[in-house]
Amino acid sequence: MARKGANGLALALAVMAIGSCGLPRSGPNKSEIFAGSVMKEGDAFIVTVNSRVTRATAVTPALGFGSSFRNAGVMGSDTIAPGDTLSLTIFENVRDDPLLGNTGQRVSVLETVQVDGSGFIFIPYAGRIKAAGQTPEGLRGAITRKLDTQTPDPQVTVQRVAGDGSTVSVSGAVSGQGVYPIERPTRTLSAMIARAGGVAIEPAVAKVRVSRGGQTGQIWLEDLYANPSLDIGLRAGDRIVIERDTRAFVALGATGAQSRVPFETQTLSAIEAIAQVGGLNTALADPTGVFVFRNEPAEIANAVLGRNDLRGDQRMVYVLDLTQPTGMFEARDFLIRDGDTVYVTEAPFVQWQKTLSAITGTVGAADSLGSVGSGS
């Protein structure tokens, strides 16, 4: 009888201790989250996800090139620019006293003629000639006209050698960072990326940023390959940077993993986000309690709630019930955004299991202590 009384006392003490201090858990339960609703004088709007809510919140980053990029067109592959190097060959129709060469030398070759910063080149006896902006054929005519008054019927050839004039820089997540000339095969964005060895990250998370003067445009790499209109013509001085998508969400609660999780695709649904962290923990999760916490811009919050009086960012809690007939479809269509927190509550019976485990463990410890005491 005394031993039973001791066990009863131990059980009572265990229940009191557990009731007073609580049990470990991964976060708030459903009732505690709902208690924070604006309807209950809290500071968050709690909204059940349906097709209307999904449409109102389906906002994705707006990426693209402005008209100045799209309308620029492809550069002529032979257009001469400041910094370019030219190779000139001049054939004179005289043998005894050529203007440029030695006696008997009718062909003169100027292999490395640099176009200066002002766009000019210097040719002996022809002087300074404007080269930038011209094609090799146009420059050939200009040189011919200058020399024609001094040597009979000169024949001139001009070849543009890839130089420092029409170049772009390619950096970031590419296989070969560097400065590359704009040549016939590399006059467009996709061709220049290929020239740099292609991207060194997964194409699904790669962004392409192009800066030109004071303007910048950014697109998804996959969109560049899918949409030919985004394959813009390049200009000298363009800066091309390949970057990894930095968007991420946080997964907490009864999921397979609790961490900050980067996006793996351009768009990410709630069901994909859950799958990305290993799904729901089948031993803990309550499929009726999947929540998405987000600070929503006022225009979207007003659309979701059917209001027009909200100002500034609003705290929103979106609720997904995967046990409903359309619950999986709603989770498949609802888009996760950068900075979201995806939280899955524990099933109610989990706390009971923890309580019973704690009680039985406490009583077992009391039995052990009682056995030791009676043995002594």
Rank of each mutant, 00 (worst) to 15 (best):
V241H: 06
R209Q: 15
I271W: 03
V342A: 03
D148C: 00
A44H: 10
G83A: 02
S77M: 04
A14F: 09
A347G: 13
Q150T: 10
Q276V: 01
A58F: 00
A248H: 11
Q114Y: 10
A56E: 15
G253S: 08
Q276F: 01
G101V: 00
V342K: 02
T360Y: 03
V317N: 09
Q177I: 04
C21F: 15
I201P: 10
R195S: 11
R128P: 06
G141I: 04
T355G: 14
S67R: 14
D223K: 10
G66P: 05
D148K: 08
V317I: 15
G256Q: 02
P348K: 14
G370R: 04
F349R: 10
A44G: 12
E243S: 12
F293C: 13
N7K: 13
A226D: 13
R244H: 07
E32N: 08
N102Y: 06
A126V: 06
G8W: 01
T255K: 02
Q134N: 12
L322F: 11
D338V: 07
R212C: 10
Q150G: 03
T48L: 05
E299S: 09
F65G: 11
A72D: 12
A347M: 02
G104H: 00
S67T: 13
Q177F: 04
D333R: 07
G213V: 10
V304P: 04
G141S: 05
G165P: 01
G42A: 06
T85A: 06
L252K: 05
F69Y: 08
Q105F: 02
T135Q: 02
G375P: 01
T188H: 07
R332E: 14
T89Y: 00
P136H: 01
G119R: 00
Q114N: 12
P203T: 14
Q215S: 15
I232A: 14
V59P: 07
R212P: 10
L110H: 09
G213H: 12
D245M: 12
D309F: 04
R209A: 14
E222V: 09
V47M: 04
E296R: 08
E202P: 07
